[in-house]
Design a protein around this nucleic acid. Structure first.
Length: 265
DNA sequence: ATTGTGGCCTGCCCGC
DNA sequence: TGCGGGCAGGCCACAA
């Protein structure tokens, strides 16, 4: 599910959880803890502490910790996989999540942080593809796609024979772009996803950069990564909304991809 | 080192 | 109505 716009919405929601002492920590499925620490250790760090800031890098939400000696200097990382949601005090960060159930099964609440004031912060994830991390290594992520500069994007794409879409999805080179946004940006920029990343001309990289920035702005305003202009045509028989050509569906960079064979070159 | 593949998980939707 | 197959917006370990 969540790509950058959704996680940004989660980040804004998480700000409602700042400065509130943590009373309880429930990790209801040990598989959801993705760092090499025990659930017991995580609880020790979190209990009595509070979140001091809610940051985002790509699709990773980072909650800084403070308030106790045990917590100061530590960071809680939340990943949402494809079906993860964030709730604070029972408010959701995102209303509709494509490919994820909107139901509220109690057993899907994998991680629950209870505040001393009675509210809570919950990660609900049916598929368990997300997870909780203690002190995630943020250096493993490339520059955030929001605000990436042209030269940073050029660096992320240059010198590689891999498909340009695969590079856009590589979180270590550019953080935040997921499958839907990659298709949308490439479609808007008229670049075929299968193009070798290093083969893009300077003009094409510039075009990609401009469309990446404007697409992320658009999708944030529209309220989700599934609100792109191409989204509703990603289906069998779907036609390009720009020129009417039948869209191609294939696997690029390991992911299902839809693109227009006429104007994406 | 870079790149491709398979696997992790479960829910949902479609066709039979 | 029930069932099986295929699909899913992410990410990691692994092998070549």
């Amino acid at each position: 599910m969540p790509e950058l716009p959704e996680v940004e919405a989660y980040r804004r929601l998480a700000e409602a959880g700042l400065g509130r002492p943590i009373a309880t920590v429930e990790l209801r499925d040990p598989r959801f803890l993705r760092s090499a620490v025990t659930a017991r250790r995580l609880g020790t760090v979190l209990r009595g502490a509070s979140f001091t800031a809610a940051r985002r890098r790509g699709k990773l939400l980072v909650l800084d910790l403070g308030g106790t000696a045990a917590a100061t200097g530590h960071h809680l990382g939340l990943r949402f996989g494809m079906t993860g949601r964030l709730l604070v005090d029972d408010r959701v960060g995102v209303d509709d999540l494509v490919y994820a159930s909107n139901r509220a099964e109690p057993r899907w609440d994998r991680f629950v942080v209870g505040f001393a004031d009675g509210g809570d912060l919950v990660v609900r994830d049916p598929r368990l593809l997300g997870g909780v991390l203690l002190d995630p290594d943020e250096q493993l992520l490339g520059p955030d796609a929001t605000g990436v500069t042209l030269s940073q994007l050029r660096r992320a794409l240059e010198g590689s024979a891999v498909a340009v879409k695969a590079r856009l999805l590589d979180q270590s080179r550019l953080a935040g772009v997921g499958n839907l946004i990659a298709d949308e940006v490439l479609w808007r920029a008229s670049v075929a996803p299968t193009r070798r990343s290093g083969s893009l001309t300077a003009a094409e990289v510039r075009r990609l950069h401009r469309h990446l920035r404007t697409t992320l702005d658009d999708l944030d305003e529209r309220g989700g990564s599934h609100r792109g202009d191409l989204m509703s045509f990603r289906r069998p028989g779907g036609r390009c909304p720009r020129d009417g050509a039948e869209l191609i569906r294939s696997t690029v960079g390991g992911r299902t991809s839809w693109w227009c064979p006429r104007h994406q070159r």
